[in-house]
Structure formats: C-alpha cells, structure tokens
C-alpha cells in the first residue's frame, strides 16, 4: 500500500508491503542507514527512532503504521551542518566507543531532555534502560546526555 511518512521533516511517499518493518523502510527503501538493526527482537534499542517525538523500537513497528506520522532518525538531529547539542556532547564526553548503540542513545537522550533539561543520573539511566551498549560505556553516555541538557558544554 502507499504510505506517506514525514522523515526528519521531509515527506516521503512509497509503496510498501504491509509486512515491511519500519526499520527496513528507513534503511532500505529510504537509504538512511544511521538507524541500526541489532537484536531484531525488541530488546537492544539499536533501531530506536522517534515516532511523533517518542522513542520506539523500529524493528517492532510496521512501516504502514507510520503512514501520516512523523519519524525522526539520527540523521535528523543535526541541522544545517551543525551538530545537535547531544551529538556535540557525545563527541566531547566520549559517549561512544563502537558507535552501534549511539543513534538510539542520542535519540532517547534528546527526547528525555525535551521534557527534562536537567535529569539526574537515575533519570537518565531509567530513560536509556531499553537501550543496550555492548561496549558497556554507560558512564560516559549518561555524562554526555546530562551535559547536552545543561549549558551544552
């Protein structure tokens, strides 16, 4: 069926099979590979995107369910060649090692900061508890999200 999805502010119209997963629609049909596929079983959060502003696991949403909705991927964080504050903070605070979980971590972090600009350690850890970092780099991920919420330093 034909769907129209607003990805990072741009409307995209495509014909998709009803069983197409949102993550494959993004990666394969739209060629945006910043959204990763990790476990493919709703566990790891590597495929996290924002659906109407809320983080969800795109391996567990059908592309047809995004019809008429807004999706934000990691490619939508930076604007006009400038890093988003959360991207700058991940760079500054070594919030990534291998980088596989990073898009999901940054999107969850950005979503948290929208509602809570100064989260405690506990609040950040709770927010990212559906996203796994196999490098176990959580200390710096938490520090980066908190820094992005403060003065951006």
């Amino acid at each position: 069926m034909q769907i129209n999805v607003t990805i990072n502010g741009t409307g995209e119209t495509r014909d998709v099979e009803s069983r197409r997963l949102l993550v494959d629609f993004i990666r394969t049909d739209l060629g945006m590979t910043g959204t990763h596929i990790g476990c493919d079983t709703t566990s790891c959060g590597a495929c996290t995107v924002l659906l109407d502003g809320k983080p969800v696991k795109s391996c567990t949403v059908l592309a047809v369910q995004a019809d008429g909705h807004e999706v934000t991927t990691v490619e939508g964080l930076g604007q006009n060649g400038e890093l988003h504050p959360i991207q700058g903070a991940f760079k500054e605070h070594h919030g990534l090692q291998c980088g596989f979980c990073t898009p999901g971590m940054m999107l969850v972090g950005a979503s948290l900061l929208e509602n809570n600009p100064s989260p405690t350690d506990e609040e950040v850890r709770w927010a990212i508890s559906g996203n796994l970092c196999r490098c176990t780099g959580y200390m710096n991920i938490v520090a980066a999200i908190q820094a992005a919420g403060g003065d951006g330093s």
Partner: peptide, 9 residues
Amino acid sequence: ISDPLVRNR
C-alpha cells in the same frame, strides 16, 4: 512493564 520504549507503544 518491559522497558521505556516498549511502554511508549
């Protein structure tokens, strides 16, 4: 219930 992302959905 599950994790925060699953709870959103």
